[in-house]
Simulated assay, not measured.
Amino acid sequence: MKNILFTLLIIVSFTSCKNDSKTEVNLDDNRAKSYDANDGYITVRGEFVYYADAAVLQTSNEIYGVVIDDNMHLLDNEVQPYKKDPTDMVPVTVRVKKFAKPEGEEGWEYRVKIKEILKVEKPNPNKEDVIKLSN
């Protein structure tokens, strides 16, 4: 009798654990699809700024010119609440298509076209890598 009760207890505990893990996977299902999709787009995390008709995405390794289109303007609208100055850069995570700039044009070596905005974060107020000039 004890063995049957013990076996039933083990089966119930394993079954309940299995259901919990499925719930966790479903919570981030859309985000996982964005990161894992094999459609030619890459996920990039960096700092974004749009100022004076120029949009830039700076990662830890490279700087990209951003194609100015509807998705870029959507991203600019989402970062506006986090900016104190028009030239402030805001951390973002986006899915982009990376391509070389056209021959003979000025600018960074690569450009990116934004497909999807995954995350916009509040800038770190303690970051001290910006030099501001004043009179």
Rank of each mutant, 00 (worst) to 15 (best):
residue 3 N to T: 12
residue 3 N to Q: 14
residue 3 N to M: 13
residue 4 I to A: 13
residue 4 I to K: 13
residue 4 I to L: 12
residue 6 F to M: 08
residue 8 L to E: 10
residue 9 L to A: 15
residue 9 L to W: 11
residue 10 I to G: 09
residue 10 I to D: 04
residue 14 F to I: 15
residue 14 F to C: 11
residue 15 T to N: 08
residue 15 T to C: 09
residue 16 S to P: 00
residue 16 S to C: 09
residue 17 C to K: 05
residue 17 C to E: 04
residue 18 K to M: 13
residue 20 D to S: 09
residue 20 D to A: 08
residue 22 K to E: 08
residue 24 E to A: 07
residue 24 E to M: 11
residue 25 V to H: 11
residue 25 V to T: 15
residue 26 N to Y: 11
residue 26 N to T: 10
residue 26 N to I: 12
residue 27 L to K: 14
residue 27 L to N: 12
residue 27 L to H: 09
residue 28 D to W: 00
residue 28 D to Y: 01
residue 29 D to Y: 14
residue 31 R to T: 14
residue 31 R to N: 13
residue 34 S to Q: 13
residue 36 D to I: 06
residue 38 N to K: 07
residue 39 D to N: 07
residue 40 G to W: 09
residue 40 G to L: 03
residue 40 G to Y: 04
residue 43 T to A: 08
residue 44 V to G: 04
residue 44 V to I: 06
residue 44 V to N: 02
residue 44 V to M: 04
residue 46 G to H: 07
residue 48 F to H: 02
residue 49 V to F: 09
residue 49 V to G: 12
residue 50 Y to A: 01
residue 51 Y to K: 06
residue 52 A to E: 15
residue 52 A to G: 11
residue 53 D to A: 06
residue 53 D to T: 08
residue 53 D to F: 00
residue 54 A to V: 10
residue 54 A to L: 08
residue 55 A to D: 05
residue 57 L to S: 10
residue 57 L to A: 06
residue 57 L to R: 08
residue 58 Q to G: 14
residue 62 E to P: 03
residue 62 E to V: 02
residue 63 I to Y: 03
residue 66 V to K: 05
residue 69 D to T: 09
residue 69 D to C: 01
residue 70 D to G: 07
residue 70 D to V: 03
residue 70 D to N: 10
residue 71 N to V: 07
residue 72 M to H: 00
residue 73 H to L: 14
residue 73 H to S: 13
residue 73 H to Y: 13
residue 74 L to G: 04
residue 74 L to D: 15
residue 75 L to S: 03
residue 75 L to P: 11
residue 76 D to N: 14
residue 79 V to G: 05
residue 79 V to F: 00
residue 80 Q to D: 15
residue 80 Q to P: 01
residue 82 Y to P: 05
residue 82 Y to A: 07
residue 83 K to C: 00
residue 83 K to F: 03
residue 84 K to G: 06
residue 84 K to T: 12
residue 84 K to V: 12
residue 84 K to M: 12
residue 85 D to V: 00
residue 86 P to V: 13
residue 87 T to W: 10
residue 89 M to N: 01
residue 91 P to V: 02
residue 92 V to N: 00
residue 95 R to Q: 12
residue 96 V to Q: 01
residue 96 V to K: 06
residue 98 K to D: 15
residue 98 K to T: 14
residue 98 K to Q: 15
residue 99 F to W: 14
residue 101 K to L: 10
residue 102 P to R: 10
residue 103 E to F: 02
residue 104 G to P: 02
residue 104 G to E: 07
residue 105 E to G: 00
residue 105 E to W: 02
residue 106 E to G: 08
residue 109 E to Q: 08
residue 111 R to C: 13
residue 111 R to M: 15
residue 112 V to S: 06
residue 114 I to C: 02
residue 114 I to P: 01
residue 114 I to N: 04
residue 115 K to H: 03
residue 116 E to W: 05
residue 117 I to C: 04
residue 117 I to F: 11
residue 117 I to H: 09
residue 118 L to N: 01
residue 119 K to R: 14
residue 120 V to D: 00
residue 120 V to S: 04
residue 120 V to L: 06
residue 121 E to I: 04
residue 123 P to M: 08
residue 124 N to S: 07
residue 125 P to T: 08
residue 126 N to C: 02
residue 127 K to W: 10
